[in-house]
């Protein structure tokens, strides 16, 4: 126990006490990364709740949305127009996915739906890169990127604005779900498909809406991430980072996705800083998974997930 404590807890306490500014910067960086994970995970949760589809294509949707936006801006369109057209493209995508894929796979086992979204991932990656090319693109949406000094910590103004934008988006979604009729219908579908159908909620329309919302969330994630590190193929890989977030937060919980994203974001940054050098670095790749795995042993349904009740 003592050894464990000396490895897992003491270094943090010590460094937090000795270098509060550095610690604060790491935590803040982690929070920002975590916000992005949350956004991607949010897309997953929305679709999983409403249709029970584990949408692996969320990462590809991030890539596709970002590529489309960059491509449109490169064509000479102003940013706002490009944004609107991309939103339109994501809605069209949602419609097509429902029309061409989901509609034909109703009542299939979950794994078949899951595999079809992996097929969709391949399709979107290929399609996006066929349309817009595969070289790394710079996305400049005109947000200032200057280092600010907040209580001794260096923080990029872009990061701050991005975090605020994401927070606004999440708040907007929460409002949409809580207070609009469509939002209520969405929650009803999430609770019980059959009951929702019975009270007259059109399931297919709901699916299109959910996929559109997930597409827009993907676009926002793509913009933030793309502006930070360029729009490129690796964007679609952040989907893989969102999976442990889902486990931690629970597949069916919107607050879970947000809190889980923040925990994973901060956790992996801190782990990288303190343990990374000891074991050869780059532990960011798997730390989140191992953290989530350890967590699953304690709570199989995640932090906020619905309790799993099984009947024969």
């Amino acid at each position: 126990m003592e050894f464990l404590e000396s490895v897992t807890i003491t270094p943090f306490v010590q460094i937090a006490a000795d270098f509060p500014v550095f610690f604060g910067e790491v935590v803040f960086n982690g929070l920002l990364t975590g916000v992005l994970y949350s956004l991607v995970a949010l897309g997953f949760v929305l679709i999983f709740k409403a249709s029970g589809v584990f949408n692996f294509a969320q990462g590809a949707m991030v890539l596709f949305a970002a590529l489309t936006l960059v491509g449109l801006i490169e064509l000479g369109l102003p940013v706002w127009l490009g944004f609107i057209i991309t939103v339109g493209a994501m809605v069209a995508l949602a419609y097509l996915v429902e029309l061409l894929v989901l509609r034909h796979l109703i009542n299939q086992p979950d794994i078949i739906l899951f595999m079809s979204t992996i097929g969709l991932t391949f399709f979107l990656e290929g399609f996006g890169e066929t349309l817009w090319g595969s070289n790394v693109k710079k996305l400049d949406i005109g947000v200032p990127d200057v280092p600010l000094d907040i209580a001794g910590m260096l923080v990029n103004s872009f990061d701050l604005i991005a975090a605020l934008a994401c927070a606004l988006l999440v708040a907007g979604l929460a409002f949409f779900f809580q207070y609009t009729p469509t939002g209520r219908a969405l929650r009803a579908v999430a609770d019980d498909h059959q009951a929702a159908l019975a009270v007259g909620i059109p399931l297919k329309k709901i699916w299109i809406i959910v996929w559109s919302v997930a597409g827009i969330v993907a676009l926002v994630a793509g913009i933030v991430w793309g502006a930070k590190s360029g729009v490129q193929f690796s964007l679609s890989l952040i989907a893989l980072k969102a999976l442990p977030v889902l486990i931690l937060g629970g597949f069916t919980s919107v607050p879970g996705a947000i809190v889980g994203g923040l925990i994973i974001g901060v956790g992996e940054k801190i782990a990288e800083v303190y343990w990374g050098p000891a074991v050869g670095g780059a532990i960011e790749n798997w730390f989140a998974y191992v953290l989530a795995l350890a967590f699953l042993f304690v709570r199989p349904q995640g932090l906020f997930g619905e309790r799993i009740i099984e009947r024969v």
Binding site: S116, T121, F122, E125, G126
Partner: peptide, 12 residues
């Protein structure tokens, strides 16, 4: 890219 795209759609 076309290959990846066709592969994905054939799977679906």
């Amino acid at each position: 890219h076309l290959e990846v795209m066709i592969f994905g759609s054939l799977i679906i």
